[in-house]
Design a protein around this nucleic acid. Structure first.
Lengths: 149, 149
DNA sequence: ACGCTATTGCAAAGCACTTGCATCTGTCAA
DNA sequence: TTGACAGATGCAAGTGCTTTGCAATAGCGT
């Protein structure tokens, strides 16, 4: 069983456990999500899935994304352009750095930043529930180190 | 001259310098923005301004916001609901903490976080251009300290 | 005061996303 | 397997925010 198949199976299990039906459309969308290593939006997911099943509709994609988000199976992000982008949630928490020139999205995580945010919220009298952190940057030309795939 | 009047005058100067016309509508919107101490959206700005000039249109508000943003006179933010909110830009850089229960927006700034972000970007091979940081929190009940107006 | 052209108001359009409704299809029971 | 019900789907229409085409209006320099 490939990693993708495992992810799809995992998604299926989550749905079943929630008493939801595993339809062909959901299976297909799940597979598309599991195979994605980027952050596609609804239209992007639709396009990829549509190639396998031309009867699929965009509304089903939106509805499925909502269900999956409720189940915690995916995460939704809205970067600067405001459109919702999705990624499967079977990974550690991370934030995003967006290349302002290419639009490429790079994931990163930093315990230091997480901790700092919690402390700042606490100082303001708040308990941190969640956060949104996006860095927008430009690739450094010379001696680029620490690049990420 | 009040602080609000100074802000409006400052905005006017920016427009003039850019060869743009100072219309009644812009003056009014500028005043509304200068008087605002929150983060109103276009409709909110329109409503406040409309009270003073019932001929104003919402499109003019949108167009004016775009002009002002281009001039760097205001900043546009889109929090979780996705709608654009605006604030005048004659202040230091800051980020936002949003009260998840009341929707209240609290401003804060932290050199430590700014520096950390720059360092993280650098480690990924990027030069930080800008960032978006929003904390979503819930007010702590007991012994609340460091609260902010 | 005059004229050029930026700006405005209005209505229509654009876009991402949601929803009403009739139809279809998982799923579970027999 | 079959039947039946409720959930899911496709389509088209509807939302809500924002933009835009166009004709009329009004700043601003001369």
């Amino acid at each position: 069983m490939t990693a993708v198949e495992q992810r799809v199976a995992g998604f299926e299990g989550q749905l079943r456990d929630a008493g939801l039906r595993m339809t062909q459309q959901r299976r297909l969308i799940l597979r598309v999500l599991a195979e994605a290593d980027d952050h596609p939006d609804a239209k992007g997911i639709f396009t990829r899935a549509f190639a396998h099943d031309p009867t699929l509709s965009l509304s089903t994609v939106y509805r499925t994304m909502k269900v999956l988000e409720t189940q915690g199976a995916i995460e939704r992000h809205a970067f600067e352009d405001g459109v919702s982008r999705y990624e499967h949630a079977d990974q550690e928490h991370h934030d995003h750095l967006i290349d302002v020139e290419s639009g490429e999205v790079i994931e990163f995580s930093s315990d230091a930043i997480e901790e700092l945010q919690r402390r700042i919220a606490a100082e303001l009298g708040y308990e941190l529930v969640r956060h949104r952190l996006e860095l927008y940057g430009r690739k450094k030309r010379p001696g680029t180190r620490g690049k990420k795939g």
